[in-house]
Design a protein around this nucleic acid. Sequence first.
DNA 1: CGGGCTATTGATTCCAGTCAATACTCGTGG
DNA 2: CCACGAGTATTGACTGGAATCAATAGCCCG
Lengths: 225, 225
Amino acid sequence: MHTIGQPFDTLFIVHSGFLKTVLIDEFGNEQVLSFPMKGDLFGVDGIHTKRYSSEAVALSNCDLILLPFKKFIQLGRTHAELEHAMYSVMSRELVREQGMVSMLGALSAEARVARFLVSLSERFADMGYSSKLFNLRMTRHEIGSYLGLTLETVSRTLSAFNEFGLITVDQRSIGIKDLDSLRTLRRLPPSSARSKQASKKAREAAALSRNGVTDNDGDLQVAAV
Amino acid sequence: MHTIGQPFDTLFIVHSGFLKTVLIDEFGNEQVLSFPMKGDLFGVDGIHTKRYSSEAVALSNCDLILLPFKKFIQLGRTHAELEHAMYSVMSRELVREQGMVSMLGALSAEARVARFLVSLSERFADMGYSSKLFNLRMTRHEIGSYLGLTLETVSRTLSAFNEFGLITVDQRSIGIKDLDSLRTLRRLPPSSARSKQASKKAREAAALSRNGVTDNDGDLQVAAV
DNA sequence: CGGGCTATTGATTCCAGTCAATACTCGTGG
DNA sequence: CCACGAGTATTGACTGGAATCAATAGCCCG
């Protein structure tokens, strides 16, 4: 695999298993950036700086496909579709990270955990596993780091979802009970208003303060190449 | 330019001027993703989904270079360095967004605003403008959206930096007085301990709870292509 | 001048972080 | 086998930082 700062030369594709990629800040704290699993690509961040800026750690037995970057470039010379696939994958990563930024910037703890569960559920479904019942491969601490929350908040939120009938939780084992509510959740009713094992759906709290899209206020000069 | 959902066909390079790129969520709230300026590329998010997932808005008069994606791909066939440059730029964007994620996930409001100012200062320097005195092209609201803060918090933080002698603020005009402190700042002393126009540097609050890097706990199977 | 957008500042609320105690899981060795 | 300890998870009490609500002022442009 690779560690931070190591010279970049190869990309990685997950054939099977689960990993995390992490960034280590100037104080040694680690921040989880992604949880690659089957079909996911990582190591791309090394292309620009010639060194990996993040580090991958296996969370289970893993089977990886190594993709030496130079060799890949050569293949791209003769197989245009490969090249386009790479652009596409990198673009997808970019969009995914945009989603992360938008989530971290705007959503409550509950909404983040809900999204995380939905996303996991969908990814497991894509891989042919059950989307309704699965085991987390990562700790609460790692989930928290990924979502910009503390492990206690993650734990509490999962417990609240459980109380609320949206999921079942037993340690690492998660059962999805009400995917729709998880999908659309913004905020849970206050705990004072919760009844044990309540089965009614989470209502929208409809945050709002909506702003119309700002119009252009600058002129535009364009030139094609 | 382009709007969200519009079919993707061209990339954009900023020749001069300032823009913002925004994501619009399901309630119409806009989230600022970046502030492209001279030399920056945007529109890349469209490659994967064939549609732009974000939207660019000019914050001043702008001069853009259009780069039709198909034409670019053709040029790449004959000019290998172009192709590599594109990988590099996309990789750079990926690293930048990783930095955003890590910032939003871990840093205080003060640290975010400080980083934002340092980054602006460096980018202005790169463009040949003054790194010590410049005008913001965006509102407090847009800065807040970009940093995952409210406009009030941005305003208060700038005022605090001013009181503290780190910067001068007059509406959109920012003067950088103590770049080093901005660079290394984690947390300001409590306001009760502040004196007007204090000139002493912000000290490190040294957050810590450092975690060692977790070791692999999975076996690894690798295969080269 | 007046109206709309932008910015500053104050008062208050509340969500998530921190600190802390306890329990569950699992592997290791007496 | 059970005890022990380390890592992980749950839950409670409390705190604090940023959001929210609100009032005022500055700026720009018709």
